[in-house]
Simulated scan of single mutants.
Amino acid sequence: MTETDRQLDQRLERAIVGLLERRAATSSICPSDAARHAYDGDDAGWRALMEPARRAAWRLAAEGRVEVTQGGERVAEEEAHGPLRIRRAAGW
Rank of each mutant, 00 (worst) to 15 (best):
A76F: 07
R23K: 09
R54I: 15
W58Y: 06
A35L: 06
E3S: 09
M1A: 11
Q7G: 05
A62K: 04
R59K: 14
W58Q: 01
E13N: 03
R23F: 01
E21C: 07
S32I: 12
G91V: 06
R85Q: 14
M50A: 02
A56D: 05
T69M: 10
D9T: 10
G72Y: 08
M1D: 08
R88V: 02
V68H: 01
G41W: 12
H37M: 11
D9E: 12
A57D: 00
I29F: 01
S32M: 15
D5N: 12
G45Q: 05
A80D: 05
R65H: 01
E3W: 04
V75G: 01
D9F: 06
R87N: 05
E67V: 15
G72S: 07
S32P: 02
Q70C: 06
A44Q: 14
L60E: 08
G71C: 09
E67W: 09
E79A: 12
R74K: 13
L49K: 13
A56Y: 06
Q70Y: 04
E77Q: 15
L49Y: 13
V66H: 13
A48G: 14
D40K: 13
G41C: 08
E21A: 08
T26I: 06
A34L: 05
A15F: 05
S27V: 00
A57R: 00
V66M: 08
G64N: 11
R59C: 07
Q70N: 07
R36E: 15
D9G: 09
L60Y: 03
W58H: 02
T69S: 13
D42Y: 12
R59I: 05
A44H: 09
P83N: 09
V66A: 08
Q70E: 10
R74S: 14
D9H: 07
R6A: 11
T69K: 08
D43C: 11
L19Q: 12
A61Y: 00
A80G: 04
Y39C: 10
V68R: 01
V17S: 03
E63K: 15
I29D: 01
E13M: 15
G72E: 04
I86L: 03
R6I: 07
Q70H: 10
R87I: 02
D43N: 15
E73T: 10
A57V: 00
E73K: 15
S32F: 06
P52M: 08
R65P: 00
R6G: 07
R22M: 09
R6T: 11
E13G: 05
R85L: 06
A53R: 12
